[in-house]
Amino acid sequence: MKNRMNLAARHLAAAWLLLLAGCGHGAAQNGLPLRIEISHVVGEAPLRLGDSYKTSAGDGWSAERLRYYLSNFRLRRADSTWFVNPQSADSSRGYFLVDEADAASKQFQIGPIPEGTYSGIEFLVGVDAARNSAGAQTGTLDPARGMFWTWNTGYIFFQFEGHSPQSSDAEHALTYHTGGGADSPARSVFLQFQTPVQVTAENSAELHLYADLSRLFDGAHALRPATLPTAMDPKAAAEVADNSAGLFRIDHIHKLPKAGLAQGQ
């Protein structure tokens, strides 16, 4: 009798597990991903590594390297609730390392996004404090990728390296790195959609973000290579971090049918 009860209980448990697994699986399958493409620009023109540009103050600058982390994506619904993009403690899922020199890194997907109407997107330029101090990571967060500080361990959130004739550093180098510990230079960015984005079972969207590097100098803080050739220590990096959050804008959003998403991957 006892055995039969056990058997019945086991069957019930198995059924529950299947049901739960089914639900979980269904949820994961439900909804399409949202594609994000990033273009680095200076004003309206595409950024070219090595080209010379001028700030509004007349300082010259060029970029040789531009890399940064984006993470903690959220989509705001019309009813002011949020869809939080899943991140996993076991992998670097949800953490994106954008590198101007690597075309593939400038196009990625978040989601799957539940069906609904969304009015804006939020993300972090950098890595959240919890993950920044969570030990050895893999994938985009692998410290061997070189986006990791050893003099104050933690990720380099935003890395801009170039030159400026006004820089007093050796070879007129311009070096802006933000990252590190206690006073986190990770900055949150919220961008409102001009028209709400609909995600349905058949259609998702592609967000084309522009990151305007002229705003690195002409942003919330006016940064001048003559007085700030290098920013790395927490104090100097705070202003660079503020400006890095102001680089982003939505250039356009277009509808992306399910078929197009499948092809893109």
Binding site: S133, A134, G135, A136, P143, F148, T150, W151, T153
Partner: peptide, 16 residues
Amino acid sequence: GSVHHLELQPVAPMSN
């Protein structure tokens, strides 16, 4: 106190 996690400590001497 520049290294905040035991696992990441070796990265400092390895790259110094």
